[in-house]
Structure formats: structure tokens, C-alpha cells
Design a binder for these strands. Structure first.
Lengths: 146, 146
DNA sequence: GTAAACCCTGTACTAACTACAGGGTCAAGA
DNA sequence: TCTTGACCCTGTAGTTAGTACAGGGTTTAC
């Protein structure tokens, strides 16, 4: 048997603390197929190598950027198949960027209605509330879209 | 038996099409206690009145503004108990507005990283992709928070 | 030797719906 | 009158992206 210093690999907990990922999430990524099933020790413990860590960091950065699990799966398939083409990746990213911009626009509409309403609230202990009135009477927040 | 023109009330489908709410969602709101259980016809059909419609519109506007089901429950409890005080409502709304602003800030950070990366993508059919490189190599998008 | 701190599996839970499956009812047209 | 299609009912399962056990086994440090 060889005696390389990294022969044993990391446990799930070690990978988790190196990356900041929740250990249960690592198991979840394996279950949904984003992370490959790693080698196991005799007693059944998962053994992770540096390539696993790199892949997990890729997934985590993708999630931070708001890509869905499905999007990341697609990007990783491109990487795995060594058929990464900038064109395909750009498509995914541009679609996601558009979705993020839509979401920002939605939230800004919400913010402006909420900010207006909070401003008009007296904050006093009185039984009239403009926010309640807004919810009961006015047009939807989507009015701004029309 | 009386013969008022609106005696029968609306069916679930009629309420749904008047408000634009999915009929299944109306049933869901009843299940979670946001909508009261309406009267039933002899054959068991739900019968809705104008007050139900008003309440449903309130819920829908609250959801459009991003309030959670729990928030809306709280607001409706205040309304139902006739103890609406501007102070309490303002607390809920201000907390939610803060959450919306945090979410906008998160999404803007995402947007700027995505926009930079998409811009740097050639869009050509080549096997190097700066987006993939970004996901593999760089610091997280949360770097901007520090 | 033993106790803490890990690891394993499988399952259940979260939010806010949405979508059936498998029935019953109602209204309009032939 | 019959039939067809559009509705209604109930209960349950699926969705997203994890998180949180329960009930066991293992490893490590003192």
C-alpha cells in the first residue's frame, strides 16, 4: 500500500468546513446528481479529493449568482463533456441575467409602493391605516407595468 | 324562501375569474386559514359573497407586494379584530420594506457580476469561456458585501 | 474505556402554490 | 330525455433548494 499524504481524501465534514457549505447540502447535491458519488472508506465514509472541492465551489458560486440547480447542471454538463462553447454558456447566462433584471424591476415596484405607504403611515396608535386602505382599495402593484 | 338576486353567491370558479386568482389557490387560502370557509349549496358547492371577494383581493394585493402568508394573516387579524392600529401595521410593513431592499441589493450585486461576465463572453463557438472561468476561479459574489 | 464528535441512511419538513385522480353536479343542445 | 362538456368536490403528490431530524455505526482524544 502506498503512503501518499492525501491518499485518504477529505470527509464530508472536512469538505464542508473548507468550502463553507452545509454538510447536508453536499449530500443533497450528490443526490440530485450535481456532485459525483465519491469513493468510500472501508467503513462507508465518503472520501473527497481536490477535484470534488473545485466542483463544489463551482456549484456554490453558481448558486450565489442565482443560477438554478438545473442551470448549473447544464453548465457542468458542458464542462464535463469538454464541449464548452462560449456560445452556449452565454445563452444560459444571458437568460438568467434577463430574469434577474426582471426580478429587480418587480422588487423596485414593490419597494416604491411600500415606501410610499409606510411614509403615509402615522405610526400612531390610531385605528385608521393607509396601508390597510391601500390593500383594500387600490389597483395592484402591477399597474406600473401597463 | 326569499328571492334576492344575489342570494346564491358565486362559485369558486366565478370568484376566480372575477379576481384573476387561480381557483386552486382559493382553496389553498381556505385551507391555510386566510379565507373563511364559505356557505355551501345543497350539493356542496362553495358560495362566495362580495365580502369574500374583497378579502381575496386584499390577500392578492398583499402577495403582489411580497408580503408572506404569515404577514397577511397578521394584517387580516388586525382588521378582523377591529383593532387596526397604524403602529402595528407600520412595523410589519417597515420590516418587509427592509427585506425587499436587501433583496434588491443582493440581486444588483448578482446583476453586475453577470453583466460583466456576459460582456466578456465572445459568444463564439470556442472552447474557452470566461463565465466558466469565473465560476471556477473567482471569489464569491458576496465579496462586494465586505 | 468511554464520551464526544463525527459519519451513515432514510425520511419529513419548509413556502406558496399547482396539478392531478377519481369521483359528483349542472346546464345546454340534439 | 339523453348526453356532453364544463364545472365542482375531496385528498394527495409534486415543485425548489435545501434543512433537520431519528436511529444507528465509527473514530478520536483524553
Amino acid at each position: 500500500m502506498e503512503d501518499r499524504s492525501t491518499a485518504k481524501g477529505m470527509t464530508r465534514g472536512q469538505l464542508a468546513s473548507r468550502t463553507g457549505c452545509n454538510p447536508e447540502t453536499i449530500r443533497y447535491y450528490e443526490r440530485v446528481g450535481l456532485m459525483p458519488s465519491p469513493a468510500r472508506s472501508e467503513s462507508g465514509y465518503r472520501q473527497y479529493d481536490p477535484p470534488h472541492e473545485q466542483r463544489l465551489r463551482f456549484i456554490m458560486r453558481g448558486r450565489e449568482l442565482g443560477f438554478s440547480i438545473g442551470d448549473i447542471e447544464g453548465l457542468l454538463d458542458l464542462v464535463d463533456s469538454r464541449a464548452v462553447s462560449c456560445a452556449e454558456v452565454k445563452g444560459t447566462a444571458q437568460a438568467h441575467l434577463d430574469a434577474v433584471r426582471d426580478k429587480i424591476a418587480d422588487l423596485k415596484r414593490m419597494e416604491s409602493v411600500l415606501a410610499d405607504t409606510v411614509r403615509s403611515c402615522s405610526g400612531a396608535d390610531v385605528p385608521e391605516c393607509p396601508l390597510i386602505d391601500t390593500l383594500f382599495d387600490k389597483d395592484g402593484v402591477d399597474a406600473g407595468k401597463r
